[in-house]
Design a binder for these strands. Structure first.
Length: 798
RNA sequence: GCCGGGGUGGCGGAAUAGGUAGACGCUACGGACUUAAAAUCCGUUGGGCGUUUCGCCCGUGCGGGUUCGAUUCCCGCCUCCGGCACCA
């Protein structure tokens, strides 16, 4: 008997797919499309490990499943190849990032081929290819022209190790998301993208998406919409006024002091001479604190300015303080403090002995323990006494509005996107600075602004990119006046290229547009997007923003790029994420060599629920390998001695079709594998042709090479993927006999096998023969019986 | 602190519109085959107990509750992981 030889089989079918261009797809309006996308990788030098495989296998199973169901499946792959590691290598060992990137791409591509996925490599994209980043720059110019890209000097997060500015999204607990170095605040002239203009649409769009709840929540809280009111407080004895944002206008009568952020421009203006020295010192100190330090100590600090504000509803004079617990970049950088109903204000008031006036009582009217931060009924609030918090929010806001002292307002936690990086290996921002004309966008026909070669890649650390030193690149002519001008030397963040790459796959070679609109119309949006949870608010939020913008300018006809999102779990080893430094990386290459790609593919699925982190077990793949051999041997034996189909095997066959489809649809891929294993354990030593063919088709998404080979062995023309996904005959799923559990007082005492629709009496009489049941019932009276046909018979005895 | 998701055998994990807990696989043990080993195949494998082809008790993080019946629902804890973190 010929035995299973994974090497021969897998290389044979790899070659076959290549020759027949089996994975090359084209637009076909006659067929429904399915766009199944992997988050394209950054090609690092370390290569792929079994954790990377997981998501790629998952998306390939879906792609192949959809293909068998008759869809025209787009399943592309490419490279997110701009980024710091290549640049840091260049600094260290002097190899041009272009070269190291190309090397890494070659390694990755070879490893990805091992998976045997149905990638259409003719559509490969690479973000560092000038023909690609031409369009990344083009999108930037469109944003610039519509005022969504602007330059601003402001304090931004700066990573001293990466020596570049960072977006808020790239700062994790005060540290650089990439390297973990605590970030500093630096005042730099930065390019910004006005993502805040899309805040509400980004929020509303989430409702339409079939995404994991967790990611939706993360984006919601990142956008951080809060509704409230802006309230203006006059400053006693001055013409200036302070505007604050509050979500609790209902507590306005309880505002007993105000606080300005230390950086607030009014601080210096309103501070009285006798407080000036102390205030100056405090402000200086607060501004030199790093954000990490500022977060580390929750101990309230602050200083009185000597000035007073006037509470617009009751005319009370309240002191104005400066404190770093108020953030300059949220709301107006100033607050009204209501210590009775806000924990932070309460703490501050206690420390500095400021008055605390409760204005909200429990719904039953009792004055609660302070601080009382939830809603209730208004007290000490003049005409609003007795009113419910929620109503009072509106009523007080309306009164302020009538008097011109305030208005309803919405604030967001999300800030505009810091978009410039002071690094080399990124897309140059296509802007020219002319001493006469100012900022001038590079004319579209001059795109791409190609990245020049440099001698020294090291960042300057002064907030300037290494490109600054390439004088013959920097010095250029102004597109408007033709006079001498300089190129913008900042580059774009890595996210720029990944915001729209999935559009390019639809039409990767187009040099007239980022993609032809009929192709975008056919292939997009992405039906299933598979990748790690780490991009929950970065890439996925930025992409959504880009697509909404491209929708607004008529490039695409949809507003959300990724209809369905699936986040695969990590593969851990010894309880930890795989990494070179921990030395716990499991290399797929050796496993493919030993067990074959099909075994590894199936083990990647079998390891656990795909959305959950799973521990890698070296022995686990053995079981899968044995399973594959059992399938192989079953086919080989059956070919020698093919039985005729019988009812029992027909029923099992239909049951398998139904189970596999249902479990693939619900992403229970680990249980799809066990369904196959159970099936193989159940069927005899041989099977009829129809059952075998069905088994092979169902198995094809998981183990494509094996399926092709078996399909051919069974006498069919390749490819198995031209076959149709088998249909289920619902009649065949009907079961006649079932095992019913017999319980006494809810405790299972035995089982009886009866007809599915057996009347209660039949089950009862069968149950009465079970020793364990007799024991439990003897000497007691049956007071009640509960019979759930096909499930349980429960005898309640006393 | 706030928000979200988990805790099931020696291990990875099945099973939740409430209905036989531990499917499937790994490990381990026993057996068959073999000169022997590997591979393969067949058994056993949650814990405890007994009168051991059978029966009893306990068992899904802990403590309560609802129910004929709870891994599943409710209340209160413990604990682990992830996100946010002075956002007014």
């Amino acid at each position: 008997m010929s035995s299973y030889n994974h090497k021969a089989i897998e290389s044979k079918w790899r070659a076959y797919w290549e020759e027949t261009q089996a994975h090359t797809v084209a637009m076909d309006p006659a067929k429904p499309k399915f766009y199944c996308l992997d988050m394209f990788p950054y090609p690092s030098g370390a290569g792929l490990h079994v954790g990377h495989w997981r998501g790629y296998v998952l998306s390939d199973v879906w792609s192949r499943y959809k293909k068998l169901q008759g869809y025209n499946v787009l399943h592309p792959m490419g490279w997110d190849a701009f980024g710091l590691p290549a640049e840091n290598d260049a600094i260290k060992i002097g190899i041009h990032p272009k070269i190291s990137t190309a090397d890494n791409v070659a390694t990755f591509k070879r490893q990805l081929h091992e998976i045997g996925a149905m990638y259409d490599w003719a559509r490969e994209v690479n973000t560092t290819d000038p023909d690609y980043y031409k369009w990344t720059q083009w999108i930037f110019l469109q944003m610039y022209k519509r005022g969504l890209a602007y330059r601003n000097e402001m304090p931004i997060n700066f990573c001293p190790s990466c020596q570049t500015g960072l977006a808020n999204e790239e700062v994790v607990q005060g540290a650089c998301e990439r390297c973990g170095t605590p970030v500093e605040k630096r005042n730099l002239m930065q390019w910004m993208l006005k993502i805040t203009e899309y805040a509400d649409r980004l929020l509303d769009g989430l409702k339409t998406l079939d995404w994991p709840e967790k990611v939706i929540k993360m984006q919601e809280s990142w956008i951080g919409r809060s509704e409230g009111a802006e309230v203006s407080f006059a400053i006693d004895g001055k013409d200036d006024q302070i505007t604050v944002f509050t979500t609790r206008p209902d507590t306005l009568f309880g505002a007993t002091y105000m606080v300005l952020a230390p950086e607030h421009e009014l601080v210096a203006k309103i501070t009285t001479s006798e407080h000036a020295a102390r205030v100056e010192q405090y402000v200086k100190q607060a501004m030199t604190k790093s954000s990490v330090e500022r977060m580390a100590s929750k101990e309230k600090t602050g200083v009185f300015t000597g000035a007073y504000g006037i509470n617009p509803v009751n005319g009370k004079r309240i002191p104005i303080w400066a404190s770093d617990y108020v953030l300059i970049d949220y709301g107006s950088g100033a607050i009204m403090a209501v210590p009775a109903h806000d924990e932070r204000d309460y703490e501050f008031a206690m420390k500095f002995d400021l008055p605390i006036v409760p204005v909200i009582a429990e719904t039953d009217g009792t004055v609660p323990e302070l601080p009382f931060v939830i809603s209730g009924i208004l007290i000490n609030s003049g005409p609003f006494n007795g009113m419910d918090s929620e109503k009072a929010k509106q009523a007080i806001t309306e009164q302020l509005e009538r008097n011109g002292l305030g208005k309803a307002s919405v604030q967001y936690k999300m800030r505009d996107w810091v978009f410039s990086r002071q690094r080399y290996w990124g897309e140059p921002i296509p802007i020219i600075h002319c001493p006469k004309c100012g900022e001038v966008p590079v004319p579209e026909e001059q795109l791409p602004v190609a990245l020049p070669d440099v001698e020294n890649y090291a960042p300057t650390g002064t907030g300037e990119s290494p490109l600054t030193a390439i004088t013959d690149w920097v010095n250029t002519a102004c597109p408007e006046c033709n006079g001498p001008a300089k190129r913008e030397t900042n580059t774009m963040p890595q996210w720029a290229g990944s915001c729209w790459y999935f559009l390019r796959y639809a039409d990767p070679d187009n040099d007239k547009a980022l993609a032809a609109s009929e192709k975008l119309k056919y292939w997009l949006p992405v039906d299933l997007y598979v990748g790690g949870i780490e991009h929950a608010v970065l890439h996925l939020l930025y992409s959504r923003f880009y697509i909404k913008f491209l929708y607004d300018i008529g490039v695409v006809d949809f507003e959300e790029p990724f209809t369905r999102l699936f986040n695969q779990g990590m593969v851990t080893k010894d309880g930890a994420k795989m990494s070179k430094s921990k030395g716990n990386v499991v290399n797929p290459d050796e496993l493919v060599e030993h067990y074959g790609a099909d075994s590894l593919r199936i083990y990647e699925l079998f390891i656990g629920p795909p959305e959950v982190d799973s521990e890698w077990m070296d022995n686990g793949i053995e079981g899968v390998y044995r399973f594959i051999q059992r399938v192989w041997n079953l086919v080989v034996r059956s070919l020698k001695d093919m039985p005729e189909p019988v009812l029992a095997s027909e029923k099992m066959r239909h049951r398998l079709i139904a189970t596999v489809a249902e479990r693939i649809e619900s992403f229970k891929l680990n249980t799809v594998v066990s369904a196959f294993m159970e099936y193989i354990n159940q069927v005899g030593s041989t099977l009829d042709r129809k059952s075998l063919e069905t088994l092979v088709i169902l198995l094809a998404p998981l183990a494509p090479h094996l399926a092709e080979e078996l399909w051919q062995m069974l006498g069919n023309e390749p490819s198995v993927f031209d076959a149709k996904w088998p249909e289920v005959d619902p009649e065949m799923l009907v079961v006649e006999k079932v095992v019913v559990a017999v319980q006494v007082n809810g405790k299972t005492r035995g089982t009886v096998e009866v007809a599915v629709d057996a009347p209660e009496q039949d089950v009862m009489s069968a149950a009465a023969k079970i020793t364990s049941v007799i024991n439990a019932v003897s000497g007691k009276a049956i007071v009640k019986t509960i019979y759930v046909p096909g499930k349980i018979l429960n005898l309640v005895v006393r």
